[in-house]
């Protein structure tokens, strides 16, 4: 068998899924990159054109979102009182690497020298829209910490933070997964939003359009149709990014929040959020509460 994956049945076929969204930093976020002497930097992306223009932007790296999502699954509470990772005997970096594990199945695993299970979920995007530079703050300067402590001398440091209100267009792509496997992806995506960012504060929200529509799109397909609402990292205007996202999401049918074409379903806005929540409930019912 060239794919190495076991066959599923007619009732549970493998399909492709995409989640597209624009996330909004609800408050300051620290997504660390490197530590210089007494200053913790956030990860920033530099872009340029061949004719020499340059841009620098804040970034939520897809690898970091992926790590948070995987841990959301590992730490999901199971009915028996244990956490899913303990129940499956699956952790990081030692994974169980079973193809029917609700975590390793879609997210992939490596059992060095023995088994690889290629992840079928890929994370993308994350370059902020606005080119708003991070601001640094003084930390560890509380007067209570500055008095001479016998054994530990506090070292004040500064830390950069991505500023609130930044928009981050992102995407999760799941190729050749079953509805059940996508249920893990949907649960992890929704559960991870409040947990993105290192230290405190944490959390991003789904951004909304002017008429309060959450900027999220879910595709379930065999054949891709319409246009993918992917925002180029070069866009710096939030209005333009949101308008583009909605325009691309609503191609080719502007009148509905559920586009149905042959081998292609797209849910937009509240309908998409609801769809993700349905999948997420399916995960809770069939994995966590089973």
């Amino acid at each position: 068998m060239p794919t190495g994956l076991p066959k599923t049945n007619d009732a549970n076929p493998r399909l492709h899924f995409d989640i597209y969204a624009i996330l909004e930093g609800s408050q300051e976020l620290y997504l660390g990159d490197e530590v210089q002497v007494n200053i913790n930097m956030v990860e920033k992306v530099k872009l340029e054109t061949k004719d020499g223009q340059a841009l620098e932007k804040c970034y939520i790296s897809p690898t970091k979102r992926r790590g948070v999502e995987r841990r959301c699954l590992l730490w999901a509470p199971v009915k028996s009182g244990e956490l899913l990772g303990d129940k499956q005997n699956c952790g990081i970096p030692k994974t169980c690497a079973e193809h029917d594990c609700p975590i390793c199945g879609p997210y992939g695993a490596l059992d060095p020298g023995k088994r690889t299970l290629i992840g079928r979920v890929t994370h993308g995007g994350g370059v902020a829209v606005q080119n708003l530079y991070p601001v640094d703050k003084q930390r560890a300067m509380h007067p209570a910490r500055l008095v001479n402590q016998n054994d530990e001398t506090p070292i004040p440091f500064r830390r950069e933070y991505n500023q609130p209100g930044l928009l981050y267009p992102i995407s999760n792509h799941a190729l050749s997964v079953t509805d059940q496997e996508f249920a893990s992806v949907a649960y992890a995506f929704l559960d991870s939003l409040a947990r993105i960012g290192s230290g405190n504060p944490k959390g991003v929200a789904l951004a909304e359009s002017d008429d309060k529509m959450p900027l999220v799109v879910v595709d379930r397909y065999l054949v891709p149709r319409g246009k993918r609402p992917v925002i180029s990292p070069s866009v710096t205007s939030p209005e333009e990014a949101i308008a583009d996202f909605i325009r691309l999401a609503r191609t080719p049918d502007n009148s509905t929040d559920h586009i149905e074409l042959t081998h292609f379903d797209r849910w937009i806005g509240d309908a998409a959020l609801e769809k993700l929540q349905d999948y997420s409930s399916q995960f809770v019912d069939t994995v966590l509460q089973a």
Partner: peptide
Amino acid sequence: WFGVHRTYRKGMREFNHDSFS
């Protein structure tokens, strides 16, 4: 627009433990 983004990542040295989770 394009750029090569160079960043720092903590990777695992060994895969036989689960202390990262």
